[in-house]
Structures are given as structure tokens and as C-alpha cells.
């Protein structure tokens, strides 16, 4: 796994190439009169797929940060939220009680990436010298502050209602209904997710990734071997922030709205647990882990409708109990996750 050369050979196809190709095809498809109507009854599943693809984008960045460089970022949702709201506020047309500047969506998309990255730089410079567990607390607190601001600053963000009237670029390309929009969205987001996976994979599988893993193992030694440790930490922090910001923008452009409910701490919990289940540091594994945890959520949602004597609130609680138990079991009995490498993570299982 750790040998650079063999990492390269591991793949029959390269995700960057496939992702790019798919993206071009997806755009062509969008602007063609073609559309795909999904079978009835699959809406719920497809909506989860959309979320999965967005969370996957956050996760590839997080995995580079924690899985490879060992940075305990407990606030990925902060960048997701900042990206989403930046895009929404710049593009919304007269939203109900919030800032809406009505710029075209590409402006919003670009700004989302830049603002999220800028927040990453700011936060990174000030906090990346903190010890692991304190970095965790600060990033978590920043995410909560941002969430608090989104909920309370109603005149700017629309408060708990959020913003509506945000453009929906993909929905605008077809008149074939919500189902067709959903499928198109999945194709576009899927291509992008694959592309980002490929790019981050190239980073982690190269000498660059080797430096990151060295930082996780021992910062001081890495520094005395001539590496600018802080620069690397800052860089991966910002890359992850930028991609999460983009994912946030994609979410609001898909929904045509932004609301604090899209950007709760649950997002952080889900991507973290997905990463740990799959095995931090295993680039494909973490996505598998995310798929597992999100399928579990989806499955239990269906299950809830089948069991009459448990209230919805109880059911939600039980689901979270199970997720917590899963986290505990993983941390204790399989710290390298399903597909992770125990030697590489320096854990015993």
C-alpha cells in the first residue's frame, strides 16, 4: 500500500481521466434534449445518492487531512456551510428577508470556493499549531459558531428559514420534471466527485502524500528532514476547505435554497464515521464507509415506516444510539476500519 510505485499500478483506470470525461459527457447530456426518467418510488434513494456524492467530496478532503496528515478537523461542515451560504446569498433573487444579490450562478460557485478556502487559510494559520485534541475542539467550536450565526443573523442569512429563490442551473436545463433533474444532478455531481477523488488520490499516492504521512507519524522528524511541515498542513486544510465549499454551493444550487438544517453537525458526524468505518487513509475505503453509513440511515428510514409501535422520535434516537455504538466498536476493535492498513495507521487491532 505504501509503496508509491505499486499505488500507481493498483488502478486499471485513472479516476481523474474518467471523472473529466464523464463531466464533459454530463454537460453535453444536460444541454441535449435527452433525459432519463427514474423509475417511480426511487426518489428517496436518489436524493440520498445526491447527498452521498456531496458528502464524498467533503470526505476526500477530510481523508487527506486526517487519514493522511493526521489533522483532526472536526469542523468540515463549517466550510460546507460557508460555501453554501456564499453561493446562495450572491445568487438569490429577492429571497424572503435575507441578502440576495442576484448574480449569475457561476459567480456564486466561484465565490463559494474562494470564501471557503479563505476561511480555511484564516483558521489554519491560527489553529494548526495546536495539539491534535485541541485542534479538534477549536474546529468543532468554529463550526458551531458559524451555525449559530446562520441561525441568528436573520437579516443577512434568513435565520432558521434560510434563503429561497436561489437559481437551480441543472433544473433549468430540462422541462421533463423532478425525476429527470435528479438523474441529471447525479450524473454531474458523480462526475465531479470522481474527479475530486482522482485529484486527491493523486496527491496521496505521490511523494506529496508521503510527506503527509510522515507528518502524521512525527512532525518534528519530518521537519528536521527538510520539510516545511506547517505549509503542508495549511495546504491540505485549505484544499479540503475549498472542495467542501464547492460541495456546499452545489447543494444550494440543487435545492434552490439554503437553510441551517442542511449544514448541521450531523454532516460532520456522518463523514467522520464513514471515514472511520472505511478506514482512515484508505482513499477508496473511506468512500465505501460513507456508503455503508448512509445506506444504513436510508434503510432504517424505510424500516421506521414498517414498525408501528415506535414513535418517530424514539426511532431517530435509536438510530443515533446504533451509530454511536458502531463508532465505539470501530474505535475499539477495528481502529483501522474495514479497508485501512493497521501498520500504516500505527494501531493494533
Amino acid at each position: 500500500m505504501s509503496d508509491g510505485a505499486s499505488r500507481f499500478e493498483e488502478f486499471p483506470v485513472d479516476a481523474v481521466h474518467v471523472g473529466l470525461t464523464l463531466f464533459v459527457l454530463a454537460v453535453l447530456f444536460l444541454y441535449s434534449p435527452l433525459f432519463v426518467q427514474p423509475p417511480g418510488g426511487t426518489f428517496t434513494v436518489l436524493e440520498v445518492v445526491v447527498l452521498f456524492l456531496l458528502y464524498a467530496m467533503i470526505l476526500v478532503g477530510l481523508n487527506l487531512q486526517f487519514g493522511h496528515a493526521g489533522l483532526v478537523n472536526f469542523g468540515p461542515v463549517a466550510f460546507f456551510a460557508v460555501g453554501g451560504y456564499t453561493a446562495a446569498m450572491l445568487t438569490a433573487n429577492e429571497p424572503f428577508r435575507a441578502v440576495g444579490l442576484g448574480y449569475p450562478w457561476p459567480v456564486g460557485l466561484l465565490a463559494a470556493i474562494l470564501v471557503a478556502a479563505a476561511l480555511g487559510v484564516l483558521l489554519g494559520i491560527s489553529t494548526l499549531r495546536l495539539r491534535d485534541d485541541f485542534l479538534a475542539i477549536v474546529t468543532l467550536a468554529v463550526a458551531e459558531i458559524i451555525h449559530g450565526l446562520l441561525e441568528t443573523q436573520s437579516d443577512i442569512t434568513g435565520g432558521s428559514l434560510g434563503l429561497n429563490n436561489v437559481p437551480r442551473p441543472i433544473a433549468g436545463t430540462t422541462t421533463a420534471g423532478d425525476g429527470a433533474v435528479l438523474v441529471s444532478t447525479i450524473i454531474v455531481f458523480g462526475a465531479l466527485a470522481l474527479l475530486f477523488y482522482g485529484v486527491f488520490r493523486r496527491l496521496s499516492a505521490s511523494p506529496y502524500g508521503r510527506v503527509l504521512r510522515a507528518i502524521r507519524a512525527d512532525e518534528q522528524v519530518t521537519e528536521t528532514l527538510g520539510k516545511r511541515v506547517f505549509r503542508y498542513k495549511l495546504a491540505v486544510f485549505v484544499y479540503g476547505a475549498a472542495v467542501a465549499g464547492l460541495a456546499g454551493a452545489l447543494l444550494v444550487f440543487y435545492n434552490g435554497a439554503a437553510a441551517p438544517g442542511f449544514f448541521t453537525i450531523n454532516v460532520t458526524v456522518i463523514v467522520w464515521i464513514g471515514m472511520l468505518i472505511g478506514g482512515a487513509g484508505s482513499d477508496r475505503g473511506v468512500l465505501g464507509g460513507l456508503a455503508i453509513i448512509m445506506s444504513f440511515q436510508l434503510f432504517t428510514r424505510f424500516l421506521n415506516d414498517q414498525i408501528p409501535f415506535v414513535t418517530q422520535d424514539q426511532f431517530a434516537s435509536i438510530r443515533l444510539v446504533l451509530i454511536g455504538l458502531l463508532l465505539m466498536v470501530i474505535v475499539k476493535y477495528r481502529p483501522e476500519g474495514i479497508w485501512g492498513d493497521a501498520d500504516e495507521l500505527g494501531v493494533e487491532s
Partner: peptide
Amino acid sequence: VPLLLMSIGLGLVLRNGIRA
């Protein structure tokens, strides 16, 4: 970090267990 993660899992279990 593993202990921190463990405590997060425990917190989820206790908080939601009590709620359930």
C-alpha cells in the same frame, strides 16, 4: 484522538439512549 472519538460515540449512545 482514539479516546476522544470513543467518548463521542459514548456521548451519542447515552444521550440518545436516554432520549429513546
